[in-house]
């Protein structure tokens, strides 16, 4: 990737992250932290590609760990966030 294009992506993504969160009510801090935790679970994709290219047993072992941890981050982050937010939903109905 061209160096400066990446720098632009970094910058724009940083502003986006800041803006998206800036007006969040306190009651959503915990679910939001959990939700953003889920989003960086996309590291799973990086782990998969790393493992996909791994050749030696050492590389395969570390790649396996990367995918395992990434999958746990994504799956766990989703379940926990969904459970917390589901409670807000059910209450609104009442």
């Amino acid at each position: 990737m061209d160096g400066f294009v990446a720098v632009y992506i970094f910058m724009l993504a940083a502003f986006t992250g800041y803006e998206v969160i800036s007006r969040v009510p306190v009651i959503l801090h915990t679910p939001l932290m959990s939700g953003s935790n889920f989003v960086h679970g996309v590291v799973l994709v990086g782990g998969m590609i790393a493992l996909g290219q791994a050749e030696t047993p050492l590389e395969q072992a570390i790649g396996f760990v990367a995918v395992l941890l990434g999958a746990a981050n994504a799956a766990g982050g989703y379940v926990v966030t969904e459970r917390m937010l589901a409670m807000f939903k059910s209450k609104e109905k009442k």
């Binding site: 970094f10 502003f15 992250g17 932290m33 953003s36």
Partner: peptide, 16 residues
């Protein structure tokens, strides 16, 4: 996609 998701969370997490 990793860069965007990661940096967005990095910035949002810092603010949080």
């Amino acid at each position: 996609a990793l860069i965007i998701a990661g940096i967005v969370v990095g910035a949002a997490g810092t603010l949080l």
